[in-house]
């Protein structure tokens, strides 16, 4: 069990995270927040690259930094940007990291072959990585994180650069792995976590906003999400009055999905809220997102 107690992180005068309290048990956690909300800072603290300014991070009751290599032994980490040596083959590269992870050569060898098959790189194990596409590099990164069969697997934007097929394969892999370990998945792509995450951690203003299951979070907007057809002439006025989530242009009119607490109009259809709805609603006033919605 991984626990954060009142964790605050400051960089000089700037507070990146404030009073974070979290608990991770087995399962997949989706860390959902727009860019700049402190996701990467939180993750870097969980992997011991950054140290909390205040508070503590405990694994099974012990401070992770004092556990030292005992903690890193059960840790798998895929950073957003990770270093690889262009002139190395994936095999050689993984051998190097296996050494850093304290695996002995024989078991590493077996494990590497296994993992390269799992991520679908068995054909190119001896090719230099400088020839690899972004998706292939990312798969090497995922394999790397899995090398030591970690109890805690932390992935920062793991699906960036993957095509839909690779993404599906990756989700299947995670579900398969999630039985006996903690998987923390940071992303701003809602669909990545919606189906596989047991719990979602949403962050806003450098602190935790929600920490709950997908359905519970979705329920917070139950009865407030509608869809309706609006003639083009009325679209402007409608936009001014309601908080729009999405618009779709049809032949005669616009189909608009929006949030309101008003009494439902008869032309409106009430719909089940999705995580995407919550995301857009929650970060509506967020500057980085505002530009995207309107």
């Amino acid at each position: 069990m991984l626990v954060l107690n009142d964790v605050t992180k400051k960089f000089g005068n700037f507070t990146a995270l404030e009073n974070i309290n979290l608990e991770f048990n087995h399962g997949v956690y989706g860390l959902l927040a727009p860019n700049g909300a402190g996701k990467t800072t939180l993750i870097k603290m969980l992997v011991t690259l950054l140290f909390p300014t205040k508070g503590e991070i405990l694994y099974n009751g012990a401070e992770i930094t004092s556990l030292d290599e005992e903690y890193r032994d059960i840790l798998g980490y895929l950073p957003q940007e990770f270093g690889y040596y262009k002139n190395y083959t994936p095999e050689k590269y993984l051998m190097y990291l296996a050494a850093l992870k304290g695996l002995n050569k024989k078991e590493a060898d077996k494990r590497i072959q296994e993992l390269l098959r799992t991520v679908g790189l068995e054909e190119v194990t001896r090719k230099k990585m400088k020839k690899f596409s972004g998706g292939m590099i990312q798969r090497v990164g995922i394999a790397q994180a899995m090398l030591n069969d970690p109890k805690i697997l932390i992935l920062d934007e793991p699906t960036a650069g993957l095509d839909p097929k690779e993404r599906a394969r990756f989700r299947k892999l995670l579900t398969h792995l999630s039985h006996d370990r903690i998987i923390i998945l940071s992303t701003h792509i809602v669909s990545d976590v919606e189906s596989i995450a047991n719990e979602i951690v949403m962050m806003k203003n450098n602190t935790i906003l929600y920490n709950d299951t997908v359905s519970n979070i979705n329920n917070t907007l139950a009865g407030s999400i509608f869809e309706t057809e609006v003639p083009f002439s009325d679209v402007e006025r409608f936009r001014d009055n309601y908080q729009i989530i999405s618009e779709r242009q049809d032949q005669e009119h616009m189909t608009i999905r929006f949030i309101t607490n008003d009494q439902a109009d008869e032309k409106w259809t009430s719909v089940t809220p999705t995580l995407e709805d919550v995301f857009l609603y929650v970060y509506e006033d967020d500057q980085t997102l505002a530009g995207r919605v309107s």
Binding site: V47, T48, L49, D68, E69, R72, D73, L75, Y77, P79, E81, F82, G83, Y84, Y85, L97, L100, K101, G102, Q144, N148
Partner: peptide
């Protein structure tokens, strides 16, 4: 350092 390998290296067993 140039290709962010440090992030990986420092989170492994050897740290």
């Amino acid at each position: 350092q140039q290709n962010y390998a440090l992030h990986l290296q420092y989170t492994t067993h050897i740290g």
